[in-house]
Design a protein around this nucleic acid. Sequence first.
RNA 1: GUCCCCAUCGUCUAGCCUGGCCUAGGACGCCGGCCUUUCAAGCCGGCAACACGGGUUCGAAUCCCGUUGGGGACACCA
Length: 395
Amino acid sequence: MTQVRVRFAPSPTGFLHIGGVRTALFNWLYARRHHGTFVLRIEDTDQSRSTDQSIQAILEGMNWVGLDWDEGPFRQTDRMDLYRDHAMKLFNMGRAYWCVCKPEELEARRKEAEAKGLSPRYDGRCRNLGITNPPGEAALRFRAPQEGHTVVDDLIKGKVVFDNNVLDDLIILRSNGYPTYNFSVVVDDALMGITHVVRGDDHLTNTPRQVPIFEALGFPIPRFGHLPMILGSDKARLSKRHGATSIMAYKEMGYLPEAMVNYLVRLGWSYGDQELFTREELIEKFSWDHVQKSAAVFNPDKLLWMNAEYIKTSPPQRIVRELIPLLVRAGLEEDVRSVSEEWLAQLVVLVRERTKTLTDMVTWVTPYFGWDVSFDKDAAKKNLTAAIAPVLAKL
RNA sequence: GUCCCCAUCGUCUAGCCUGGCCUAGGACGCCGGCCUUUCAAGCCGGCAACACGGGUUCGAAUCCCGUUGGGGACACCA
C-alpha cells in the first residue's frame, strides 16, 4: 500500500470549531496509525470571509489539542497560479467554458426555478456559446458529464451512487480570478498527493462534482471518507446557540486537551466498551470501520465527566502546570510564587476528586493559600473539613 | 422541489457485514443504598432502547422491500 497522506483543510472564517477538531483528529489518527503524513491546508479563497486572525485561531487550537502536522500550513491564496493553470488546461481541452451570466441574473433564475419547484441548477445557457475571449468579467465553468453515474466508495458510508444528470456545470474560476472550493480542493488534493480525503458529511454530495474534475485533469482519484456531523441537543447542527463551539472556549472553561480529544473521538467512533484512551491507544486502535455512520449529539455532561476523570487520574504535576496560569489570572500570582510546585501538586491531590474542571479547581484551591506555606499533607487532610465548609457556603 | 445520507436506552455506543451465544451489553445523566461528622470521590443496585409495517427464515436488532422520522446538498461560501 502506498504511503498514507491525509489533510485537514479548514477555511479561516472564524474560530476553530469542535467539529473541525474532530475531523482533524480522525485524519491525524489515521496518519499516525499508518505512519503517514498529515497536511494542514488553509482554504482561504473566499477573500471576503477569510482573516489572518482566524488562521491564528486554527493554529492555536490545533496546538492546544496536540494535533501536529507534518506539512504546511499551506495557504491556497499562495497557490493561485496552480489553480489558474489547471483551469486553463481544462479550458484548452474543451472541458471548461466561459460564462458571462451575471451573478444577479443567476440568483434571479435560481429563485425562479425554486419557485416553480424545479431544481435550482445552472441552466447551461453559456455552455455552447464557444466564448474564447470573454468581454469583461466572466467566470469559467467546468463542463460536467451529463450521462452515466459516479460511484463513490466511501470509507465510512460504503458505496454511494449518483446520477450524473443531477450535476451542475459549476464555476471553477470566479470572475475575479479566484478559484472556487470545488476546484481548488481537487487541484490541491491531487497535487499534494492526498490518498484519503476525509471530511464532514456535508461534503458527500460535493464528491460526485469533484470526481469528474480529477478525471478530466488526469489525476488519480483518492479514497473518500465522510464523517457524520455533530448535532446539538435538539438534533440540529451544532451551533452557538447550543453553547460553546470554539475549541479554545473549552480551554477557557478549564477543560484538559486530552479530555477534549478523548470525548471528541468517542463521538462517532468506538472500540468495544472502552471509554478512556491514551493518545497511544487511540493511534493503535483507530480504524474507519468503527466510525459511526449517523450523526451524534454533543453531550456536555459526558464531556464534563470525562474531564473530571482526567483531572483525577493525570499526574498532579501535569495538572499544576495547567492550573498555574489560571491561578495567576485569578489574582493569586503572589501566592503562587510563594509556594513550591511540589506543594501545589499535593494540594491538587487533595482537591482533585471534587473538581470537574480546572476552573472549579481554582475555586477549591484558593482558600488554602492563606495557610502556612510549610504544607503538610496529613495536617491538611485533618483540616480539610474546615477548609471545605467555607467554600461550600460560598457556592 | 430534486438528489444524497442516516435510524439500538434521554445522550454516546456494543451487537448488525459472517442471522440463533441478546430474557439486547457498557458509558454519561437520573433515582436509591453503602461508606463518610457534611460535600465530593468510591462501591452496590435501579429506571430506560432494537422507529413502524411487510417479507425471507425453523429462527431477525441482525438480510430484503416499503413507510415514517431526522440530517445534508443543490452559491462567482467552504
